[in-house]
């Protein structure tokens, strides 16, 4: 554990809590892509199956459980409790365009051809692209509430901090995980355009982020 890794985990947790509280307090999931949230729940489910096989640390187990519970709770809020506010019309990204190639790639490129390893790889690849329905929705509607942009900022920052963590680990431990690093770079690149808009429009302006 190093400072980049810890800051990354905290950033990830902050992002998920921001989104959950936004929906819970406003009793509305307007502007939120339910599809992205289902994909994130799928990411955590397929990655954290090792909860049943190995014990790493109390921190590791608790964080995994928190991520799992919050991701499913968020999906529940969007599709059940506040489904009246769900904008299914604009949440029209075709997730099969992500799921099919990601599944295929996980079978082709993995560390071992075992169910847990393939599912772990699947989760890493899927996480890299899971935000696309959300970004697609913002592009389609042309705007995002500032609280939604704060969520996206922390979610993007988390993987960027993990990149710093991997650089740190490579230099201190010689640790290098090719699948995670390549996917992490791809994932972070997806947020770059958003980071730019966030700094220039949300932080310097006020209220909603509207696209030009």
């Amino acid at each position: 554990m190093n400072i980049f890794r810890l800051a990354g985990d905290v950033s990830h947790l902050v992002a998920i809590i921001i989104l959950f509280l936004k929906i819970w307090k406003s009793k509305s999931c307007a502007g939120i892509s339910g599809k992205s949230q289902v994909l994130f729940a799928l990411v955590f489910t397929s990655r954290y199956l090792d909860l049943f096989t190995v014990f790493i640390s109390a921190y590791n187990t608790i964080m995994k459980l928190v991520f799992l519970v919050l991701s499913y709770a968020t999906v529940y809020l969007i599709y059940m409790r506040f489904r009246g506010s769900y904008d299914s019309e604009n949440d029209s990204f075709r997730v099969e365009f992500l799921l099919v190639p990601v599944t295929g790639l996980a079978f082709l490129e993995n560390y071992a051809f075992t169910p847990l390893e393939i599912l772990w790889t699947f989760s890493i690849f899927l996480e890299a692209v899971a935000i696309m329905p959300q970004l697609f929705m913002i592009t389609k509607t042309g705007e995002a509430e500032s609280i939604t942009t704060h969520y996206l900022f922390f979610l993007g920052l988390y993987r960027a901090l993990y990149l710093a963590n991997w650089v740190w680990r490579y230099h201190t431990e010689g640790f290098f995980d090719q699948i995670a690093v390549v996917s992490g770079v791809v994932q972070t690149i997806f947020y770059c355009d958003f980071f730019y808009l966030y700094v220039t429009r949300v932080l310097r302006g006020s209220g909603k982020m509207s696209l030009p």
């Binding site: 985990d9 640390s57 560390y111 071992a112 772990w120 993990y162 995670a180």
Partner: peptide, 10 residues
């Protein structure tokens, strides 16, 4: 993974 990488990351 089981051998190829450390599994402490989230």
């Amino acid at each position: 993974g089981t051998d190829s990488k450390l599994k402490d990351e989230l």
